[in-house]
Design a binder for these strands. Structure first.
Lengths: 123, 123
DNA sequence: TCGTTACGACTACGCTTGTAGATGGAGAGT
DNA sequence: ACTCTCCATCTACAAGCGTAGTCGTAACGA
């Protein structure tokens, strides 16, 4: 239950499972590939920890397990963002966007998307 | 240099120092107050760790130290946000806002602020 | 001068994270 | 039946974190 916090490395393991589930440990490792340079053991440890945390479900498939996410990516994202935004910006989102604006990391596309989004929200 | 990562608790200690610096350990502890229920020792440990990380500077004031931030709050915010946004949204900000929109955590004020901000950015 | 305080430094200790090796059992090939 | 291979599980271990106690010393008050 209580989705405990998911660490960076654990998140990397969730990724492929959010894209396609269920997967075996090897498939997950393959999906992560060289991106991180992990031994298969490392991936397995992380999978086990995620199962322990209640973030993944297992289903037996012969002698091995297939893993699938128990928590939604959206829910996890929302939780993490909320956490950080509360901490850094007192929960207000506009300073957050302003922050990105100041850092000049917003592309024209970003701005156009935001505009469209805001218009949609206003209705 | 290389501002290493600052943990949640450490951030709580930086807070008062970003608001007013320099402060003594006791002043920092007082500023944190009951918010977190920390012993003065805990605050001192965190201060020492932040100094070790190069996030705080000390200046002697008689038999004690006064602490001041060496890293800017803005820089820290930007770094943290970038980290999370890269991880969760592939670096794009509009899905992030959309996320908040879907979660219905945007107030009318938020939306108005965002609109104003976007208009400013468009120029 | 002697005890009391107020500090910083050192030490502690259990928990989580990142990273992985070792072990033991079940299937597969021969 | 025997070995080789593949898996999950157990174990490991250093670094970082949260939380705090103890120690030595310098200053202050009596």
């Amino acid at each position: 239950m209580m989705v405990e916090r998911i660490s960076d490395s654990e998140y990397a393991v969730m990724e492929p499972l959010w894209r396609a589930a269920p997967l075996s440990a090897n498939q997950v490792a393959a999906a992560i590939g060289d991106e991180r340079n992990w031994s298969i053991q490392t991936v397995k440890t992380l999978l086990a920890r995620l199962v322990a945390k209640g973030a993944l479900a297992t289903q037996a498939d012969g002698r091995r397990f297939l893993y699938s996410p128990l928590i939604e990516r959206e829910a996890h994202r929302a939780g993490e963002m909320r956490r950080l935004v509360d901490r850094l910006f007192g929960g207000r989102i506009s300073p957050l966007v302003a922050q990105f604006a100041d850092a000049e990391t917003l592309s024209d596309t970003d701005i156009a998307e935001l505009k469209a989004l805001i218009e949609r929200l206003e209705k």
